[in-house]
Every structure is written in structure tokens, then in C-alpha cells.
Simulated scan of single mutants.
Amino acid sequence: MTARASAELPAPFFDFAMSVLFVFVALFMLSTMDTPRPPQAGVLTPKAEFLIELTWDDGSASDVDLYARGPDGKVVYFGSRRTEVMFLDQDNTGNGNGGVADRREIVTVRAIEPGDYKFNVHAYRLSGPVSVKLRVLKLNPYAVVAERTVTLDTQGQERTLAAMTVRADGSVEAFEANVKMVGK
């Protein structure tokens, strides 16, 4: 080999190394770029502060309803599905929901509105005794506020299963209550 030939050998290696380096830098830049997408008109990002979940025996033909009363005194239920801050996201009517065996009703509280909240269950239609469970979850940060399970055995039966006081800072305290909301 001549001196000139040995000096030319590194050039292809240098080109290859630079190409590999360029690819790695480009991949790194792509992976670290955070390009927010512009919001689409008419599309809302759902946000919830509290989630109230009522469940009962899967596959049951019974229709159990969740009633939620907020600090403004307004009640959310199947006949009035929302207020300014509370929404009935799902109403399950037992066998009236087609092939869906999961028995669940959900109310969300989508803002911190200080005051007292009360949550009732109502046996709208029973096919027999049914075990119902109510959970009140604080989502930001996550915490279980209340959880209670009871058996409903009489059609028209109504029970207050949870109540809470929400403060302006978002903190919450559960308390016992017994209120009627059906037919009010």
C-alpha cells in the first residue's frame, strides 16, 4: 500500500460514522419534541373532580337509580341528567340496556363547588333483592371518599349511601345523612 491509499481508507468510515450520528441526533430530537396540537373547535376535554359510581349485580334485571344533590340543591338523576357541575354520565336500566350485563351508573362532579353533596340509590324496578355498592372517588388527587354496600329488597326503596362536604380548596370530608330525593 502506498501512503496515499492508506490516507483514503478513513473517508468512507468517516462518512458512515457521520451518517449514523446524524440519524441518532435526528431521532433524539424527534423523540424529545413536544408539539402540542391546536385544539379543535367544538371538542371539549372532559375533566372530573369527583366520580360517583353505583354498581349492582351484573346481569340483574333490576333497575337501580343514582340520585345526586349538589350544594345548589339541584338533583341529578335519569330525569334530569345535569346541572352546572354534575353530570349523569351513564344510566343503566337493567335488562333495558340490551346485551350489556354490567350494571353501573356514574355521576361526575366536574368542578370544585364548595358545599354539601348527597348521594342516594333508588330501587326503581326490582326483580328480587339486589346488592348495590356506591363509591365516591376524589380524582385530583385520587382518594376514596366513601364506599358502602347495601341490599335493596323493596321496589321504591330509597337510601342515602354517601354524603360529603367539599371545601373551596378541594378538600373533602364525608358525613352521614338521610335525605329523600325521589319525588321531590
Rank of each mutant, 00 (worst) to 15 (best):
T160D: 02
L27V: 15
Q90P: 03
K74Y: 07
F50W: 15
Y77K: 07
R159G: 02
V145Y: 11
Q155G: 03
D57Q: 00
F78R: 06
A61D: 05
A162W: 13
D34V: 06
V43H: 09
P36V: 12
N92D: 14
P39K: 04
Y142M: 09
V130I: 03
K118I: 06
A174H: 01
L66A: 06
V166M: 09
F28P: 01
T149E: 11
V107W: 06
P129T: 06
F28Y: 06
M164T: 10
I52W: 06
G183W: 13
S80F: 11
E158H: 03
V136K: 14
L139S: 00
G170K: 02
D63A: 03
L126V: 03
V64P: 01
F119I: 11
V179P: 04
P12V: 12
V75E: 14
T55N: 02
P46C: 03
K118A: 08
L30W: 06
D169T: 05
F175C: 09
N120A: 08
T93P: 01
T83K: 00
M33G: 14
D15I: 15
W56K: 10
R37A: 13
V179G: 00
E8N: 15
T55A: 01
R103N: 15
S60K: 01
N178Y: 01
E84Y: 03
A177Q: 05
V76E: 10
D116H: 14
F14M: 10
R82T: 02
T165H: 13
V144Q: 15
A61S: 03
R167P: 02
Y117F: 07
E84S: 11
A177E: 08
Y124G: 14
L44A: 11
M29K: 09
G98P: 02
V109Y: 04
V182N: 07
T160G: 04
G42K: 06
P114S: 12
V136Y: 11
M33P: 11
D58F: 05
V144Y: 04
S131Q: 09
M33Y: 14
K118M: 08
N178T: 00
T83Q: 05
A26Y: 11
W56L: 07
T165F: 08
V182Q: 11
A146D: 07
R104Q: 07
R103E: 08
A177I: 06
I106W: 13
K47S: 15
V76R: 10
G183Y: 12
G59L: 00
M1Q: 13
T108E: 05
V150K: 12
E173A: 10
V107L: 05
Y124K: 15
P36A: 10
F78K: 08
R135Q: 08
V166L: 13
D102N: 13
S31N: 05
P36Q: 02
V23L: 14
K133Q: 06
G156L: 04
P114T: 11
N95M: 00
S131G: 04
I106F: 12
V76F: 11
R159A: 08
A146F: 04
M18C: 13
S80V: 12
L9H: 08
R125L: 05
G42W: 01
R4P: 00
P12K: 15
V23F: 09
L44G: 03
A26F: 13
V64L: 09
S60M: 01
T165A: 08
T154V: 05
F16V: 14
T45K: 15
L21P: 04
Y67K: 05
E158D: 00
